[in-house]
Design a protein around this nucleic acid. Structure first.
Lengths: 108, 108
DNA sequence: GTTGTGAATCAAGATTTGTTGATGCGTCAA
DNA sequence: TTGACGCATCAACAAATCTTGATTCACAAC
């Protein structure tokens, strides 16, 4: 069973970092059903615009969100591809860890 | 479709924070097959003992690792229950986001 | 007891992260 | 062209995080 490459770990750490904040998880929650523009998100989350923009950038840089400008408005939406990759990473941890079954004695 | 409660978000943010660091992901990788004691991990990861202890504590506090003392040695192993919860959270994001199909127009 | 070893904790400093308010940029309407 | 609006970015500060080396703690062997 191959270990993940450093690059994969880097990527995964980036994803998880983007997800490691309640504000950002709430943003994601607001986007589960459909895209939203920034001003709607400030209303939904009751937060300052610059704070929101900061967190949106982190999520976007991690590949978790996409944005789309329409006139004066910028709409953010989830990037399903990345969400799926995150899920697959978590799934692989689960699958591979079940091989070791918790507190089994050392096997090296 | 109910939104996750604040408490769930808090929990999820804690999990993801614990996973948001390459060193910690490498630790997890070392524990996929079987438990390891701290001194083995320092060898495997080529890192200082106090640094490792710091990261192990974060993973343990997040519920991702369990520890077990045996004489002078402390053995760390994955906590499959938490790994599964993380995977389920990621899965729910994936499932729920597919309902919205990416960049679909706003529906509120 | 004393000593040695594995591991946690502490202290100090460097770095990163998050918040707030101000400013700048692009777009639209008048 | 001017003004208003939506949003990104900047500057400054507060707070959290990470690293390193020293110290402490727990246990076992002697």
């Amino acid at each position: 069973m191959p270990s993940p490459k450093t690059k994969d770990l880097e990527q995964a750490a980036r994803w998880f970092h983007a997800l490691s904040d309640q504000t950002r998880l709430r943003i994601i929650d607001c986007l589960l059903d459909c895209e939203q523009c920034v001003c709607d998100l400030t209303d939904m989350l009751q937060t300052g615009q610059s704070r929101l923009s900061f967190h949106l950038k982190i999520l976007k840089d991690a590949g978790i969100l996409k944005d789309r400008r329409d006139g004066r408005w910028v709409y953010y939406s989830l990037n399903p591809d990345t969400i799926e990759e995150v899920q697959e990473y978590a799934e692989s941890l689960k699958t591979r860890s079940h091989g070791g079954r918790g507190g089994s004695p050392c096997c090296d």
